[in-house]
């Protein structure tokens, strides 16, 4: 044992704290409701066949069903046919808990639609943020103009304003413009990212002036310099910003909950979780956790692909 064991101990404890909810989420998405209630079954649950009560109830045979089934069960009483039909329904409606949870996640709510909405919203936010932030950051980092320091001071000042503080005025403005319940309501308030401007400005400060002068000598306009020279050199910083931006807006529950009321076609993935919030008859934790797992999977995949860049980005910015 090295003498640094206590550092590892603290780190391991930290990891447990971070991982535990995630572990619960994935584990619940595998288990049957009974196992979740009783807290048993380990990580994967026992995966015994379970019967979906609602499915059976929906197929509860009516008089017509029984009459129609007469041919298949010749010479039997109605009660016996009914029992046989219920048994058939139960057989059809029984499945492994994992299948139950994930199929519920996709059938109970239009989860694919939510995922698509999530992609549309996060991608538009990020693209517009880049279109705004890059020229702004370039001007703040490399152009000399009167009042530049003041403008940069304002950018820093805006970093201090929490979104929740201005949520209400924003909501009122969007309502007056009649934009609530639209993609615009989800996208527009986030299009100017002062954090993005700040991050890119700090990165552009490190780009040598000679490179920009060379581009000017080569005949590029200032905007051409932004898109043809600064953007390609700033890819690592841009990746870091992309991760901050995409993670924040993909996972955002607060803002979509405010501006999207009713129209399920505009729900983003986190809003989809509410579908399984049972009111009287208890919550469907299994399908709910399956939905949560489906929602975070794209981010985890993206993280694994961009892991190296992600770490680079964080050391570059070292904040937020």
């Amino acid at each position: 044992m090295t003498r640094d064991w206590w550092k590892h101990l603290i780190l391991i404890l930290g990891v447990i704290v971070v991982i535990a909810p995630f572990y619960m989420m994935v584990s619940y998405s595998f288990k049957s409701p009974g196992e979740i209630d009783r807290g048993e079954g380990g990580f994967f649950g026992r995966q015994e066949m379970m019967v979906d009560e609602r499915c059976v109830k929906l197929r509860d045979p009516s008089r017509d069903d029984i009459a129609a089934a007469m041919d298949r069960f010749p010479g039997q009483t109605d009660a016996a046919i009914r029992t046989a039909l219920v048994a058939e329904a139960e057989a059809d409606c029984s499945m492994r808990p994992v299948v139950f949870n994930y199929s519920k996640a996709f059938t109970e709510a239009p989860l694919l639609r939510y995922l698509l909405n999530g992609v549309i919203v996060t991608a538009s936010i990020f693209l517009i943020q880049v279109v705004v932030a890059l020229p702004a950051a370039y001007a703040l980092a490399k152009l000399k103009f009167w009042g530049r320091e003041t403008v940069f001071g304002l950018v820093l000042f805006c970093l201090l304003i929490p979104v929740h503080a201005i949520a209400l005025p924003l909501y009122i403005m969007l309502t007056k413009l009649g934009l609530t319940n639209s993609y615009a309501a989800l996208v527009v308030p986030w299009t100017i990212s002062v954090f993005g401007i700040f991050l890119m400005r700090q990165f552009f400060m490190t780009v040598p002036d000679d490179l920009i002068d060379a581009a000017r000598m080569d005949g590029m306009s200032e905007l051409a310099i932004v898109w043809r020279v600064m953007l390609p050199t700033a890819v690592p910083a841009l990746m870091a910003f992309a991760i901050f931006s995409v993670v924040a807006h993909w996972n955002d529950y607060f803002w979509p909950r405010i501006v999207i009321s009713g129209n399920r076609d505009l729900f983003t993935p986190p809003l989809g979780l509410r579908e399984f919030k049972g009111d009287a008859d208890g919550s469907f934790f299994g399908p709910m956790m399956a939905t949560a797992t489906v929602i975070v999977t794209p981010l985890i995949v993206a993280f694994l692909i961009a892991q190296k860049r992600f770490i680079e980005g964080i050391t570059l910015s070292g904040m937020k």
Binding site: D210, D213, A214, A215, T233
Partner: peptide, 9 residues
């Protein structure tokens, strides 16, 4: 230029 200032990408 002294630093050559080639476009790195």
């Amino acid at each position: 230029f002294q630093s050559y200032a080639l476009y790195p990408h």
